[in-house]
Write a protein that binds this DNA or RNA. Structure first.
Lengths: 110, 110
DNA sequence: GTCCATTTCTCCGACAAAGTCGAGGAAATA
DNA sequence: TATTTCCTCGACTTTGTCGGAGAAATGGAC
């Protein structure tokens, strides 16, 4: 009964990071990916909160990984986008693409 | 004292509509532009609230237009992005572009 | 001409949703 | 058991959303 009103900006970013990272998508890696690619500085806490909400909305799923053989190698929790998540993401990305169609990086209209 | 953390999704959309509409950017036209281009259904109230917040943050400015010679032609309030607004918008749009670089409309990685 | 219904547009107040942070806890290794 | 890596939780701020009220203008009935 909740015909979803689209993704927030950060949810979009997190979902995109999931797509980009593929099998390697877990909390810390996601944070790093966003910082590296989007140039945006966020805390891991923010990422986890968002991940949890996305999971509650049925847009992503998670699974626990095995412990890695390194100091402090705690089990990671990997995330992947579900079909509904991909659909939502594609919709909002494409909306953005339409809105920015024909705009230069400086936002001029050619 | 407020090292700004970027724009929300809707703020982004409204700002983009301003850029696209140029001199014709006022409340109702902005709503229509977003509906037409982004395919997203919003109320005018939502747009005004966002516009007001953007103005308070110094990202857009407004001026009153003249009454138009048509039934109910109340004076419009035109908005335009300020330098800081364009900067913010360009930053978040470019971040999105980097994150979606190489992704198909269906979000596959080629 | 005067009223008032109608149209166009803007403002406001309240609430829901998303975003953010920081401290703290669990599990693994050395 | 000290250290490292990662995840959870709770509190709070910022954004997003709506619906209805209000202001300004016109057109027509009388």
């Amino acid at each position: 009964m909740d015909v979803n009103h689209g993704l927030g900006e950060f949810e979009q970013l997190v979902l995109l990071a999931l797509v980009r990272l593929g099998a390697e998508a877990y909390g810390v890696a996601i944070r790093d990916e966003i910082e590296r690619e989007a140039g945006r500085d966020v805390t891991v806490g923010a990422v986890y909160t968002t991940l949890l909400r996305l999971e509650n909305k049925g847009l992503v799923a998670s699974r626990l990984g095995d412990p890695t053989p390194q100091r402090g190698g705690r089990r990671k929790k990997y995330y992947r986008p579900l079909a509904a998540g991909k659909r939502e993401l594609a919709a909002s990305v494409n909306a953005l693409r339409r809105m920015t169609r024909g705009l230069t990086p400086g936002l001029e209209l050619p």
